[in-house]
């Protein structure tokens, strides 16, 4: 359904091009949940914004295409993109508190999206289009019920600050679902929430995925969340996808030294060790990236070949791909 091919984008800064997304290939089938995992600043959120064509100002797409239902989103006009946003592709943001507009009632904000995309534009009748208004309202209440907001009839009239964080995120999911999108982009939807609420929100998203058949791209830095929730996982490092495969392939049998390092750095209950094992070094400066493997300075298994040229994606079997010469 969604296929990103060879996408590269960069921010034009005074220090030169900052390559935030570098030759990314991704594909999400209908009803599939794809996880993008990586540390802060590795380009995962920007990849999502690219899909919606919402890259902030100095950003520019350098190459590639984003095929959605057979059409290239990068070639669409502004108007066409506006029609797609919120309708075919909806996004859920990280911080629900700031994502909801503080001056409007929750119910109105859910209705807003339906109204923009003319979901009930065929419903006629009534003074001031009251029939349509009621149709939208009924649907909004229905949605609120579906995402697990208790007593939606009354909560409909609440303002965002009267909701708890978890309820706000549910409301945002309801907004995202209002036009029955085919693809849901979730940018760290659980990061701002506490752990028990995280689990509830993830369960809700899982339910939506199963019941609506909406594809989901989940961006997270939490490997645990990704492992539990996603069908496929892509690991990003410094703007590149370094490993991609089905969840069990990536989690049970990580190939790339970076993925291995990430998994080792998760604290385990069973482990007797006092300290977790960090990956030495820090994230490279995206403005100074060269064609070589960006993980080279931190990699325990690095050898000279890694510096010589751009590392291609190697197939490690059954669709499991790795950007590392160890598997070439």
């Amino acid at each position: 359904m969604l296929e990103i091919k060879n996408l590269a984008m960069a921010f034009e800064t005074e220090r030169g091009l900052v390559r935030a997304v570098n030759k990314v290939d991704l594909s999400v089938a209908e009803g599939e949940v794809m996880g993008i995992v990586g540390e802060s600043g590795c380009g995962k959120s920007v990849t999502l914004l690219n899909i919606l064509g919402l890259v902030p100002h100095p950003g520019k797409v350098l190459s590639g295409e984003i095929m959605f239902q057979g059409e290239d989103l990068l070639k669409k006009s502004k108007k066409e993109m506006r029609d797609i946003r919120g309708k075919d592709i909806a996004m859920i943001f990280q911080d629900p508190m700031t994502t909801l507009n503080p001056v409007f009632r929750i119910g109105e904000q859910i209705r807003e999206s339906m109204r923009i995309h003319g979901l009930f534009k065929d419903v006629k009748g009534g003074f001031f289009k009251s029939a349509r208004k009621h149709a939208e309202k009924d649907r909004a209440v229905e949605l609120m019920e579906e995402v697990g907001i208790p007593s939606p009839e009354t909560r409909y009239h609440n303002f965002p600050h009267e909701f708890s964080g978890g309820m706000q995120q549910r409301a945002l999911i309801a907004i995202g679902l209002s036009c029955k999108p085919k693809l849901l982009l979730a940018d760290e939807p659980t990061t701002a929430l506490d752990v028990t609420i995280q689990a509830q929100i993830l369960a809700l998203m899982q339910k939506i995925n199963q019941e609506h058949g909406a594809g989901i791209i989940l961006v997270t830095h939490d490997l645990g969340v990704a492992a539990e929730f996603c069908h496929k996982i892509a690991v990003m490092y410094a703007g590149r996808i370094v490993e991609q495969g089905r969840t069990e392939q990536v989690m049970d049998n990580p190939h790339h030294p970076y993925t291995q390092g990430l998994l080792r750095s998760i604290p385990k209950m069973s482990s007797k060790k006092d300290r977790i094992e960090p990956i030495p070094g820090g994230v490279p400066d995206l403005a100074e990236l060269k064609e070589e493997c960006a993980f080279y300075p931190r990699c325990a298994k690095a050898h000279d070949k890694c510096l010589s040229q751009e590392v291609p994606m190697f197939d490690a079997g059954e669709g499991h791909t790795v950007r590392c010469y160890l598997y070439g």
């Binding site: 919606l52 919402l54 993109m81 506006r82 029609d83 797609i84 946003r85 919120g86 309708k87 909806a90 996004m91 943001f93 990280q94 911080d95 700031t98 994502t99 909801l100 507009n101 503080p102 001056v103 409007f104 807003e112 999206s113 923009i116 995309h117 945002l172 907004i175």
Partner: peptide, 23 residues
Amino acid sequence: EYVEAAKANGQSNLRIILSEVLP
């Protein structure tokens, strides 16, 4: 973020200015 969210929701600039930010 609500401005970003409004964009992600397919709202036009005029609409974002008048009915999201101004209130």
